[in-house]
Design a protein around this nucleic acid. Structure first.
Length: 449
DNA sequence: TTTTGAGTTGTTCGA
DNA sequence: GTCGAACAACTCAAA
């Protein structure tokens, strides 16, 4: 049983199937950061992965199976583990990013050697190939995609976790988790993360129940207010598949409350994966590499060198715009940022600073606990105006207006960046807005080559 | 097949 | 202070 971005035992199709096998199973987690189709993990994400693997190890041990840890290119290491263990079958849940090229090649190779390699439904509500427009093309507009999801009907009911597992005979060598050095040391900049988050399947379910118990009622009204704890905070758990979106969907419906708005946000995650799936397996075409709107191929972004000082201020949260600075500090200290503020800081970077959205995306990738290969670049592209169902180019968030609207009492700003109010603004909002509008207008008018 | 209307998250300006 | 218009172009789906 090969675990990937699905570090859980409930609603796990591949595990359920593997559990039926009388030969017993080997549970494997393979950390692959070197294949061409994978993306090296961000530093914050590694912290989460460490703790999530620890949690899965305990859960599996309780069910009777050790978790084997191995590192390297999947196409080299997986066959090694198969040979070492004498496994005759290999099961996994499907991935929907560029990594699926690796899975397809492995499946073919293993089957060529007489190994029964099988994949199962992965961590989405609906598999991407089952949702398409009447013309068979992928959706490019969210609302139409959401309607299509609703027409598709409820996703399958979550599968129960196995009550017991049988370990395969013989021993398979495993790396030790601390040797992977996923946790930061010297300095331990993640020291505060544990005050905000508890990785692991058990806590993912607790978080969902808590949210559905007393927060979801206020979700629609308060989700845009960053000082209020009104969001589900499930995203890092979903990132590692500690809980499946199908479980979230059904438990939310089961609550009997008005969960429409919340589920439509789960569908945005789905839409990002749908979009990533349809750009194909070529890493060069992946969402983090290329704007969906090809007109932006020649966009006159200012280079990182040119915007060096401003970029530094953006990353550190010393731009002199309290909402931007508060957001960037929240990110650094907690590994997360409120959704409303993400839009503001992303608009600030791509529009006011006129820096390539990929630079911001890379920073989020490194510092966010919930960044995945679909949502993170998809949403950056949405804000930058070059993505699917993108914000119109003239939508430039004004951090001063936004703070008046969404943090009028300054609670959020005071919590994260109290001294930012005294900083000197690094740029002129009106002037940089005009600069962005001019550049975007030119790009829009450019004929597509 | 063609036409038409609608579409997550904003800001500014002028009446 | 409030309100509506303008700021495009394109995709999707219904008519």
């Amino acid at each position: 049983m090969w675990f990937r971005d699905d570090l859980r035992v409930s609603d796990h199709a591949a595990l359920c199937e593997a559990a039926k096998d009388p030969e017993g199973l080997v549970a494997l987690y393979l950390l692959d950061e070197c294949s061409a189709q994978t993306r090296p993990l961000g530093a914050a994400t590694k912290w989460w992965l460490h703790h999530s693997l620890q949690s899965l190890t305990e859960t599996l041990a309780g069910l009777g199976v050790p978790l084997v840890l191995r590192r390297g290119a999947a196409e080299e290491v997986l066959p090694e583990v198969v040979a070492e263990s004498g496994a005759t079958k290999v099961f996994w849940n499907r991935r929907y990013g560029p990594e699926r090229a690796i899975d397809a090649r492995l499946k073919q190779d293993l089957r060529g050697q007489g190994i029964d390699a099988r994949s199962f439904i992965g961590g989405l509500l609906h598999e991407p190939h089952t949702i398409s427009t009447a013309e068979g093309t992928p959706y490019r507009v969210y609302s139409a995609f959401w309607r299509a999801c609703l027409r598709h009907g409820d996703p399958a009911l979550p599968l129960p976790a196995p009550v017991a597992l049988r370990a395969a005979e013989g021993e398979v060598s495993s790396d030790s988790l601390p040797d992977w050095k996923l946790l930061p040391t010297d300095p331990d900049w993640a020291s505060q993360f544990a005050n905000f988050w508890t990785p692991g399947e058990e806590f993912a379910h607790m978080r969902l129940r808590e949210f559905l118990g007393d927060q979801v009622i206020r979700y629609q009204a308060d989700r845009d207010t960053p000082s209020v704890d009104a969001t589900s905070r499930l995203s890092p758990h979903l990132r590692w598949g500690e809980i499946s979106p199908r479980t979230v969907w059904h438990e939310a419906l089961h609550s009997g409350l008005d969960v429409g708005m919340f589920l439509s946000e789960i569908a945005w995650r789905e839409f990002a994966w749908h979009t990533l799936f349809h750009v194909g397996e070529d890493p060069a075409h992946s969402l983090e590499r290329r704007s969906l709107n090809r007109r932006f191929d020649l966009f006159p972004w200012r280079s990182s060198a040119e915007a060096d000082t401003e970029l530094d201020a953006w990353r550190r949260g010393t731009t002199g715009f309290p909402l931007v600075d508060a957001g960037m500090r929240e990110l650094w200290q907690s590994g997360s940022m409120h959704n409303r503020v993400r839009m503001v800081v992303a608009s600030f970077l791509s529009k006011n600073m006129l820096v390539d959205w990929r630079v911001g995306e890379a920073w989020f990738w490194d510092t966010l606990l919930d960044a995945d290969r679909a949502s993170n670049p998809f949403n950056w592209q949405w804000v930058a105006g070059c993505g699917a169902d993108a914000a119109p180019y003239f939508r430039v968030f004004n951090p001063t207006t936004q703070v008046k609207k969404f943090d009028p009492e300054g609670k959020y700003v005071t919590r994260w960046a109290p001294e930012s109010l005294l900083c000197v603004p690094i740029l002129d909002l009106a002037q940089t807005r005009e600069r962005a509008l001019a550049a975007y207008q030119l790009t829009k008018q450019q004929p597509l080559s």
